[in-house]
Design a protein around this nucleic acid. Structure first.
Lengths: 354, 354
DNA sequence: CGCTAACATGATAGCGCTAACATAACGAAT
DNA sequence: ATTCGTTATGTTAGCGCTATCATGTTAGCG
């Protein structure tokens, strides 16, 4: 039928039908077929029906790579997190994914493993895929990253924490969260409180919570000792933390009792550690909160199911993802974004462990 | 210098430098620059150095979309899971991601939300991105999916469970796991055991475990009652399960006591439910395992930290992801894959709750 | 009846890269 | 000197799609 002259340099890879073949089958030009699929309102209804019928009949699957190249748009959203082992990031990803997928965007997930150089490489790769926007967990990047992000002229969304953002920012104030819990401990009469975290160089948001905690205690004229488990960055080989921190929490409690005999309360950097410690305290026969008070951070379900119920701080993580995605989508659709920065806040859950 | 005649139809979108510009800057042809970046061994060392220098100087970021179109390869791996809320899938994803990323592959994550039609749409999209391979959680697909997968001529890896797979398969035998736990319960003298699951139509692997459980009990001449919480598919709006099943486990215990007064043991479909029930039993003052024995499935850390320690079955989920990725990579690199099917097995963790 | 606007469709030329083939230079083997 | 193989590089022609501009067709209007 059509021009099948065996051109010397043909190199079609798959036998997948192309848009051209669909168009021929429907008796229209390629561009009309393209419009029938991507801009239905620009095409006559009957024409469109014929194209869709041909698509169905031939089993056509659009080549999105070619489409992206031609249009220089990709509907990819780069999402970069430091870890998948921490449920906190998973919940944010869930919120992002749900919202982006509903609008036809595809997430490209990158895991830096708490390595800023790795983040840079991921961003380069994702830019190479002409992603429409980038979402990163956290505000800390290395110099190369920051340059790349600043020059790429795409929406950048930084989530998890608030601060001096490159572009858009949805998160919460971790220092304030630390202050909040510290005030709660003081209110409950705990004058001797220890903050326990792990690898604060990597988990720097926990470090910010400690700063808030310290500020409050020092303003009250009290000491604010810190006990850091597995010091160092989170990129170091994982030990106890690998399994979610429950073991590390137990270890933390032991070390607290040994190294800070007078301590009456422990403010843990997260609920995993706090839960591990609480369960361990029960094994040791220590009453919580009478002998030792325990506080956490994150508001994980498990903390609200154990007895005594864990005092902790909950942040709306899934909502954070949803809000972030919504703001990015607004921007992509050309609407002016009113708020570049959005504080999602947090909630003190007063349990029976303090 | 070069031909800058203003062609009428120019439509370069970004100001990003192209490979051609890098090549010009390095004084070589575009293809040489391409080879310098992608096949370093095919290019003279000095030439390559000049190209890399130009890349650095111009801040060139390769356009992977164009590269994929030209080569009809994409280094994308489609990974399709039914949910991100369940840590079980996250762990598999972790194993996959780690292994694939190390080999330069990028994961495209899709979430079906337990909807087989959604799975079909995702697969179409991912095929449109010329993904190199597809990994799906589970063996159940609808007809359209199966057709698409069978005809796409790419490695297909099905993980989580073992059975009649389309291509490659890494997983474990859930029916056997159910049998294993049932035998354990019988050994411990529990003649009156109830299986509690939730939404078994969606979580059909739990249904398989129940089948194994039932088989063993019935062969012993015993009843194997089933209590299904929130009956229906997992795509239905989530209620208690939303928060991970701890609440649902408590509810399950209550209902078990009310509806099956004589029951002495409960075999839960997973550790979330079992942990929720165990903690609730403590609140109710029921001794575990004397008054009621509790078993789970998954081997989550929390189950091993509560008192009494939860009897459960652990499967190597991260390793499953790693093995699956390794097999897919082998296939992609043209090596013959010896085992199309790999049983990763499971491990009975005997705790103090049975 | 001509003029314009709105709609529907098509021809052409890229998007930025790489596969396939072509060429050149050089030493080793015949 | 001729042939061959190896290595390094270049020329050309796409990959499959869509942006851009052009054209045709119909309706609306004074």
């Amino acid at each position: 039928m059509s021009n099948d002259a065996p051109n010397s340099r043909r190199r079609r890879s798959t036998e997948q039908p192309t848009l051209k073949q669909v168009a021929d089958a429907a008796g229209v030009s390629a561009i009309t077929a393209s419009r029938a699929l991507n801009r239905p309102d620009q095409v006559n209804e009957l024409t469109r029906a014929r194209v869709l019928e041909a698509v169905e009949r031939l089993g056509y699957v659009p080549n999105l790579v070619a489409g992206s190249l031609a249009s220089a748009r990709s509907r990819f959203i780069a999402v970069i997190v430091p870890s998948l082992a921490n449920s906190v990031f998973i919940e944010v990803i869930q919120g992002l994914q749900e919202t982006f997928e509903a609008q036809g965007y595809q997430i490209l997930l990158g895991n830096t493993e708490y390595d800023l150089e790795r983040e840079y490489q991921l961003i380069r790769t994702f830019l190479g895929w002409s992603c429409s926007a980038l979402v990163t967990a956290g505000l800390r990047h290395n110099e190369a990253c920051r340059t790349l992000l600043a020059n790429c002229d795409k929406p950048i969304m930084e989530v998890m924490e608030l601060g001096e953002a490159l572009d858009l920012n949805v998160g919460l104030d971790h220092t304030e969260a630390g202050r909040c819990m510290a005030r709660h401990l003081l209110e409950r009469g705990h004058r001797q409180a220890l903050f326990i975290g792990a690898r604060l160089a990597g988990d720097y948001r926990a470090g910010m919570r400690y700063e808030g905690h310290r500020e409050v205690f020092e303003q009250a004229g009290l000491a604010a000792p810190l006990l850091e488990l597995e010091r160092g960055g989170l990129a170091a080989p994982l030990l106890e933390l690998e399994r979610g921190g429950l073991d590390a929490g137990a270890t933390g409690l032991e070390r607290a009792l040994a190294e800070h005999p007078g301590i009456g309360a422990i403010h843990f950097a997260n609920d995993d550690l706090a839960t591990g410690a609480l369960l361990h305290a029960q094994r040791l026969g220590l009453t919580v909160p009478q002998r030792i008070a325990i506080a956490g951070f994150n508001g994980l379900p498990i903390g609200q199911h154990i007895t005594p119920r864990l005092t902790t701080i909950r942040s709306p993580r899934q909502a954070m993802g949803e809000l972030a995605a919504t703001a990015v989508i607004r921007r992509l659709e050309g609407q002016r974004v009113v708020r570049r920065q959005h504080d999602v806040g947090f909630e003190l859950l007063v349990g029976d462990s303090t």
